[in-house]
Amino acid sequence: MKPAPFEYKRPQTVEEAVALLGDDGARARVLAGGQSLVAEMNYRRARPARIVDINAIAALEVIEADGESLRVGALVRHVQLERGATDGPLGRLLTRVSRHVAHPPIRNRGTMVGSLAYAHPAAEWGAVAVALGAELRLASVGGTRVVAAEDFFRGPFVTDCGPAEFVIEVRLPALGADMGVGFVELRRTHSSFAMVAAVAVLGIADGRVTDARIALANASSRPLRVETAEAVLVGACATSASFAAAAAAAAAQADPVSEPHASADYRRHAAEVLVLRALAAAAADVGAACA
């Protein structure tokens, strides 16, 4: 349970950091909150030759709403999102979801961007990112590029981010003031990993669903936006019947695997129940009646 030796670097700028990442041969890893990486290193499942500690790069502490989106830099800790990073539905969603991310001491160090980059299939932030249509900005020696969350996640712990680049920020699109948000998670104990989690964002006008975004964590090999469920809802009346139909569609699109404490069938069933509850929570959040 002790990490293998490594070379430690603490760059002051993103440019220095990407230069230190080098190519494949450098076997370098970026250290931000370290709440997953250091555990992996303690197990020696990760044996990086070089650690690039980005904690001194002040520019990555950015957390800023510009009306169109919320920019969350690579050093923004979960606790900052928990305490209210922005106003309106997006702020409410981030606070609600944060409370499901591990437990308080981990949230004091761990970062949203680090969680996205780690790409654990049960991670809450991945589901939020694909539900909202977030964009990740990646830096390398060649400059920066932007990748949609939907294209970023490839599978468990596998992303579009190459060894010589790292995610410097994520942009979460703002939500209209009249949108409702819901998030529910099934877990064995308070700080366990999600068996399944569901996020729902709804726009409802005159009793009809005008906008629906639904995503699941740990219901597939990567965060899953369930477009089939969204399609069932948009234009439909916001009723318990339409929500139930959407939840059934979400469960059909889910592709869970069996885990020691839950079979695939159980988790698919849980996905349906959770989507239904997330939709009810989102409808209640928007203040719309759900007959």
Binding site: Y8, L31, G34, Q35, V38, D53, N55, N108, R109
Partner: peptide
């Protein structure tokens, strides 16, 4: 001021 897991930090991070 914040509670953290000391097993998940390297000493050199505490400069």
């Amino acid at each position: 001021g914040a509670a953290v897991r000391s097993c998940l930090m390297f000493t050199v991070q505490c400069e």
